[in-house]
Design a protein around this nucleic acid. Structure first.
Lengths: 331, 331
DNA sequence: CTTTAGCACTTATTATTTCCAAGTGCTAAA
DNA sequence: TTTAGCACTTGGAAATAATAAGTGCTAAAG
């Protein structure tokens, strides 16, 4: 259905369009394919009929459709080696042993945005294979305590809680002791039910006034269980792309970046590096999202790169794979 | 120099322009001042010569200059009462006793942006009257510890640190013990020097292999001392203003919001609610920043509202004052 | 001295027209 | 199957014209 020269033409058009952001005309491919513009035009027409190419108007050159990008990504794209210069930058992340994981990830984001000029995001969420390692309730004033939860993977969360009434120091340390005795080692996604069904019924036997403290810890913990961190780099980068040359598109994408739902669209579901083009991204028809999931040290992380549909696919994929592999080696 | 009617005209022009975002012509003020447009024109000319008004072009109506806004804000503006509806929203922050301070502040931001349709920011930084209350070093693996620092104001910071070599559990708890014994009660801005001059010299007597652990804690602590939190709400709101109708201005302001220097421009220096118009904001000539400083529970917070120069000054100032007063009462 | 009516003048904005470059589809011949 | 040739379409830039809003100034009136 789609011949070899046509594949090659599609590839050239996608790559040319990625480079220049301008529709590609038949004449510009003549030298490369050693044939006349009419021949190219015939093939282009064919590719258009099959849905791989589009025109902006009747007499414009061709641009790839989403289907065209998809075909390119699935069958035509060649992986791109990381350039020496870029490799040097990436090395700074992994050669520095002092850097702990979360700093390494942040640094990676920074470098991705710097090299690609796209927007990058990392989304972290304590994963279910964290076990509770330690609980602390630290009195601050007579009516406030700070509750601290630490997991065996080293994730720490804290929350300052107002008690609704004055509570005795001794009670606080007793509560803390009981919580530790009964909860240490519990997977975090089982803590809630253990709290409710095993601890709540008996804690009254040891601690008077237990309700206030129980509630305080419960609140702190629920904070922990749902906590997500989102970090962006180069949010403004995408605006540099020529596809965002009119106000409404710019305002639109900026609003989407600010909205809360963006988190769901970004969260990776696959361990591989996956590409979501235009509509597939469910974020905005004008963007491509390339994302992957990394499970690291008890945290599920999603890293995503957001750019225009004419993104440098090969470059970004190679880079994400490299970073993913090296982070996992480090972790 | 500037007569009573002229003041009144200036006030009307500022308020009209704030409402409509369009230059104000002489005719539109006739009814209000019960005189002909020519009279108004004479006064306008005078106000322009004094620098309070500007024209966009020779035959346009007048708009306030930055000096005009400044005069309005300093001498003409009347404080605006908070509407019943808005008051209701604000009450939800302060009536809820369960809400701890940092949640209350976040909630305030949200409501400010919601009511005003401007952008709001809060900037927090541990202030110098925090004293160290507790230090913990918790081993996670043989080569990682989590260092936790807690102050008497309930601020908690933690950092996971890679040790460069394997360290014995006992050493860790000994170090932790010493740090606590010697540091508890120390104001956080004196911890660094105390660490270096009092603890480093003697810790070797108690803990072998102390260097690794000392460095780990030192790193965790320096993380703490410099940590700043920045929270935005309604970042995209400002784009809704008609002054941002061309791409470049939009891209410009978005980039500025993303840049790191913005923090310096936002940080409040004054306990009062202060207004910085256009250039005065040092952020962008097209915006006004209204900000104030709140010292709360051991944290220095700056709250800022960013909007167009034709901001609803009265409304925002009243609202910020109300929030500031009530947060300080709560804290 | 202040206010007003009248008028010529300026400018942004919008719509209309004209022109050009780029590129297409199609036909007929090679 | 490829190519040359040509009529045709479109977006975009530049030029032109028409309109609305509002000014400054002058001279007369209050």
């Amino acid at each position: 259905m789609i011949g070899d020269r046509q594949k090659s033409i599609l590839k050239s058009i996608v790559e040319e369009y990625i480079k220049t952001a301008r529709p590609v005309g038949s004449k510009s491919l003549c030298k490369k394919f050693k044939c006349s513009s009419a021949t190219i035009r015939n093939d282009m027409l064919n590719l258009e009929e099959l849905g791989y190419l589009e025109k902006q108007h009747i007499s414009s050159g061709r641009i790839p459709s989403e289907k065209g990008y998809r075909y390119y990504v699935d069958y035509l794209m060649e992986p791109k080696k990381i350039s020496g210069e870029d490799m040097l930058k990436l090395q700074t992340i992994f050669s520095n042993n002092e850097l702990n994981l979360s700093s390494a990830i942040e640094k990676s984001l920074e470098i991705i945005s710097d090299i690609t000029n796209y927007t990058s995001v990392v989304l972290g969420k304590a994963s279910s294979d964290n076990n509770l390692q330690k609980v602390e309730l630290i009195p601050i004033t007579e009516e406030t305590v700070v509750a601290i939860v630490i997991t065996d993977k080293g994730i720490v969360e804290n929350k300052q809680v107002n008690l609704s009434e004055r509570v005795d120091m001794g009670e606080i340390s007793k509560t803390s002791e009981i919580l530790n005795k009964m909860l240490v080692g519990t997977p975090i996604d089982e803590v809630s039910s253990k709290l409710e069904f095993e601890i709540k019924p008996i804690i009254g036997n040891y601690v008077k006034n237990y309700e206030v403290l129980y509630n305080a810890f419960y609140e702190a913990f629920s904070n922990f269980a749902t906590k997500e961190s989102v970090k962006w780099r180069g949010k403004a980068n995408i605006l540099k792309q020529p596809e965002f040359s009119n106000v409404d598109d710019v305002k639109n994408i900026v609003s989407k970046f600010e909205s809360k739902e963006v988190v769901n669209k970004i969260e990776g579901t696959d361990d591989e590096v996956k590409i979501y083009i235009g509509k597939e991204s469910e974020l905005d028809d004008n963007v491509t999202v390339i994302k992957t999931k990394i499970r690291l040290n008890g945290e599920d992380m999603s890293i995503a790169v957001i750019g225009p549909k004419r993104m440098e696919y090969g470059k970004v994929v190679t880079m994400l794979e490299y970073i993913k592999d090296n982070l996992e080696k480090k972790g």
